[in-house]
């Protein structure tokens, strides 16, 4: 059963307990200065954005069919069956295709390190595998960040909108974006006012490249045979011409 996170911005009080818990869980520094940074970075995997009296979280969406994992040449990034998109630095070679490909701009890089790695929220992959909820959900005092089965959370989100249509935008961000994500968001004000892109395709991004890549095994023998065939035909003509020339030459010599 795939797990997920439902973040309901209308219930959020902006206490940033999730940020603190995330930093502790991942061994990252956290103080007032970090708390004031409203951007995710190599040392801050989630952030609570404030706009007037509204809040919004940013974190890895842990896509159902993630572009980052699909583009990783060495499989350092992986979508686990439980939902988290995890990272294994020992496989990584640092090509940063994941960063270029991510539609949400999530993966960050340790630019200042001599042995750099990719850093991002991995939806507490280890905790989730142990049957626990994510650190951010566990620490949330209001239940704004809720952990559970993705399907159940999606039903709940729909119900919340249905029961209280005046309180919500009729849009569950992450339900269909880039083919669906494990993290889903509810809000009363447009998502793009927090920098979320609302024009994203509903198609899973890996399909764009896979529809080309999947044809390569068929292409190779066809194209190889074609090249070999052209060679054979063009050089056959040459052989014939040479043989004829030789014949003529021999005849000429004999006469």
């Amino acid at each position: 059963m795939s797990k997920g996170i439902l973040y309901d911005a209308t219930m959020c009080i902006g206490c940033k307990q999730c940020e603190q818990a995330c930093a502790t869980e991942n061994g990252l520094p956290y103080d007032d200065k970090v708390a004031a940074q409203e951007v995710t970075s190599a040392h801050k995997y989630t952030t609570v954005l404030t706009k007037d009296d509204k809040f919004m979280r940013r974190m890895c969406m842990n896509c159902d069919d993630p572009a980052c994992a699909s583009v990783c040449p060495v499989g350092a990034l992986k979508k686990t069956s439980l939902g988290p998109v995890t990272y294994d630095k020992s496989r990584c070679m640092g090509c940063r295709y994941c960063m270029a490909a991510c539609p949400f701009g999530v993966p960050k890089y340790e630019w200042d390190k001599a042995v750099p790695g990719v850093r991002k929220c991995i939806m507490c992959g280890k905790r989730v595998a142990e049957g626990k909820q994510t650190a951010c959900a566990e620490s949330c005092p209001t239940g704004a960040t809720k952990f559970g089965d993705r399907d159940a959370l999606l039903e709940e989100a729909k119900k919340r909108i249905h029961d209280n249509p005046g309180n919500y935008l009729p849009h569950i961000f992450g339900e269909t974006e880039v083919g669906g994500t494990s993290v889903m968001l509810l809000s009363s004000i447009p998502f793009n006012s927090f920098g979320y892109r609302t024009d994203l395709t509903e198609r899973a991004l890996p399909m764009y490249t896979y529809q080309v890549l999947s044809r390569i095994p068929d292409f190779v023998p066809l194209f190889g045979t074609m090249l070999g065939g052209i060679y054979w035909i063009t050089h056959r003509r040459q052989d014939v011409a040479e043989a004829e020339a030789n014949e003529k030459g021999q005849k000429g010599g004999a006469q």
Binding site: S70, P73, G75, P206, L213, I216
Partner: peptide
């Protein structure tokens, strides 16, 4: 380490 879904792997 292979990931045939990755264009970078092909590259």
């Amino acid at each position: 380490m292979r990931n045939p879904h990755s264009v970078m792997f092909e590259v």
